[in-house]
Amino acid sequence: MALKPKVPGLVKGLGVTLNTMLTTITKGANTVQYPHEKEAPPIRARGVIALREDNCTSCMLCVRSCPDWCIYIEAHKELAPPRRAGGAPRKVNRLERFDIDYALCMYCGICVEVCPFDALFWSPEYEYSEPKIADLLHDKTKLGEWMETVPEAPELEAGADNKGKK
């Protein structure tokens, strides 16, 4: 077996590491010092699911389509004042509980896709870790707060036909 080290391959390898070192020293590293500086995730990044409570009719579509059943909805029917004067009072679904267990969630996005009333949105927010796994069950007020971080849907690449969803 030819074990005598032929110089070029070995030296080339040394060159690559030295080159990287010099680049790091002169141009800075490729890493980001996380708590001090943050990378902006892409607009479509699936960070956390935000809820617009007013749009939700508690139709339970998201609950049924969730592959690991991590959405919990409880609602009751209420009589709301009629739209027109003199009309009969309307029946509306009043949301009591809308919880998503992020310890179970697989971030597949099916619930956002099936929602027919645009009540669920993806937000790129990612800093919501908890020391205890049970604390990852977030209720509707918390989900509503994330609505502020939901970005506008990005424009589409040339040649796209239909308008994109969120």
Binding site: P42, I43, R44, G109, E113, P154, E155, L156, E157, A158, A160, D161, N162, G164, K165
Partner: peptide, 10 residues
């Protein structure tokens, strides 16, 4: 597909 490509992706 679920969605089209965002602008600038190409």
């Amino acid at each position: 597909l679920f969605n089209d490509l965002p602008k600038g992706w190409i």
